[in-house]
Simulated scan of single mutants.
Amino acid sequence: MDSERTPVRVVIVDDDQLVRMALRLVIDGEPDLTIVAEAADGDAAIAAVDEQQPDVVLMDVRMPGRDGLSATRELLTRPAPPRILVLTTFDSDELVLGALRTGAHGFVLKDTPPARIVDAVRTVADGNPALSPAATARVIAAATGPQSSEARRATRRAARERLSALTERELDTARAIAEGLGNPQIAERLHISTATVKAHTSSLFAKLALENRVQIALLVRDAED
């Protein structure tokens, strides 16, 4: 990223002070990123965003008081919301899934290597989703629950109708995303360039009116269930 650009403004939200300190050390050490505020719960996060107008919010989901899911929902209703990058230890799959369904732009595990957390912040700041393939697969698995046969049929019909607007190559890309593959792996499977995969994925977001890869994966799973 160009060092002459205005640094990406980041708010850290986590009820664990040690986590906040560690993230601040990692992120503030990058010349193109800067921490503008910290918050320990959802209400404080909303106040910090209102005051600082950050580009990215690193949002924990499980906190005392107002949790990260509720705060994410409110922030994403704003006219110019920040990009939300969810933090999780995966003891709260359902909360993470709820945040992603709401429109959060990605998620990272708290034990992710620091360099990858920094990359994820940059990725969502640039307008792209930041979702680990392995983590994506786990969240999708958490979303799979029992349904009545009638409900499954209705869900399947609706999902297939939405997917019918895709080209064959876009559908292949969507199915690969549902398997948790990253762009390089999708490019190898489909014998296309990574840039073409990115173009197909952008088209999927536009045609399906979705915000992230998990939403694409869930739609594909609904269609094939």
Rank of each mutant, 00 (worst) to 15 (best):
V13R: 05
D14T: 08
D14I: 03
D15I: 07
D16A: 15
D16I: 15
Q17G: 10
R24I: 12
R24E: 06
L25V: 15
V26W: 03
I27Y: 07
G29E: 15
E30C: 07
L33P: 08
L33N: 11
T34E: 12
V36M: 04
E38G: 07
D41F: 14
D43R: 14
A47T: 04
A47W: 07
A48R: 13
V49C: 09
V49W: 09
D50R: 15
E51N: 12
Q53A: 14
P54Y: 08
D55Y: 04
V56I: 06
V57Y: 02
R62N: 09
M63N: 04
P64H: 03
G65P: 08
D67I: 05
S70Q: 15
S70C: 06
S70V: 15
S70N: 15
T72I: 06
R73C: 09
R73K: 14
E74Y: 08
E74C: 12
L76Y: 10
P81W: 01
P82W: 06
P82M: 04
L85C: 10
T89I: 04
D91V: 10
S92Q: 11
D93F: 14
E94C: 00
G98N: 10
L100Y: 01
L100C: 09
T102E: 15
G103H: 00
H105M: 07
H105N: 14
G106I: 03
G106H: 02
F107L: 05
F107S: 12
F107T: 11
L109K: 02
T112N: 11
T112V: 11
P114W: 01
P114Y: 09
I117A: 00
V121A: 02
V121L: 05
V124Y: 05
A130M: 11
L131F: 01
L131K: 04
S132V: 06
P133T: 06
A134C: 10
A134V: 15
A135C: 04
I140Q: 11
I140N: 02
A142V: 02
A142W: 11
A142I: 01
T144R: 14
T144L: 11
G145V: 09
